[in-house]
Computed example of a mutant assay.
Amino acid sequence: MSHTNTPQIGPIIQRERKARRLSLEQLAALSGVSKSMLSQIERGAANPTFAVLWSLTRALKIDFSDLVGGRAAPADDSAIEVVTAFQTPEIKSADGACRMRILGPPQLVGVTEWYELEMEPGSELDSAPHAPGAFEHFTALSDGFEIVSGDQSCTINAGETARYRADVPHRITNRSTKVARGLMVLHYR
């Protein structure tokens, strides 16, 4: 019986992450895999599950077979890429009341990012300042959002867009009595 060497996945993940200019924190947000787990995987100190590897390959847009085969293939830029709902990374608040689906591609993290936001009634997404010069553009798909940026605030309803500084503390609150949805674009200068 012939034995093959176990693929060295950590260095491939690290190479692909760096090629896309992603920090560990950015890849963690895109993949749903914790920053500490990513660090352990890259160092070869952890043995990731299939689910973790699947999440990482989807976030990095590499084929799973290329990852376990010891190489990663460049994405075909001429093709139409379809990301299924199952493959779309999601971030949830600790209480589960706010859900953000990451709609933007990993290679644009830190440049332009976009998200679909869904919030339970009365919940809020409270954010620390992003990088200097960062702006958010939030379009309400339902009524009753309150936007706070620094010491400024406003209320927006379905179809309206608020554009505001995101390099100061900022917050989005669902003031309605229903689940509310919106689209957010974060642009770094």
Rank of each mutant, 00 (worst) to 15 (best):
M1F: 15
T4V: 14
T4P: 10
T6P: 00
T6S: 14
P11H: 11
P11E: 07
P11N: 05
I12R: 03
R17A: 04
R21H: 13
L24F: 09
L27G: 07
A29F: 11
S36V: 15
R43C: 10
A45M: 12
A45K: 13
A46E: 00
V52K: 10
L53Y: 03
T57Q: 06
T57D: 08
L60W: 03
K61Q: 15
F64T: 11
S65Q: 13
L67T: 02
A73V: 13
P74Q: 10
P74V: 07
A75E: 15
D76I: 08
S78W: 13
E81P: 08
E81M: 14
T84R: 13
A85V: 14
Q87D: 15
T88P: 06
T88V: 12
M100C: 11
R101S: 10
L103R: 01
G104K: 04
P105N: 12
Q107W: 12
L108T: 14
V109R: 08
G110L: 03
Y115M: 07
E116M: 09
L117C: 04
M119S: 01
M119N: 04
M119F: 00
H130W: 05
E136Y: 02
E136A: 01
A140L: 02
E146L: 08
G150D: 00
D151Y: 06
I156P: 05
R163Y: 03
R171D: 06
I172M: 03
S176F: 04
T177P: 09
K178N: 12
V179S: 04
R181N: 09
G182A: 02
M184I: 09
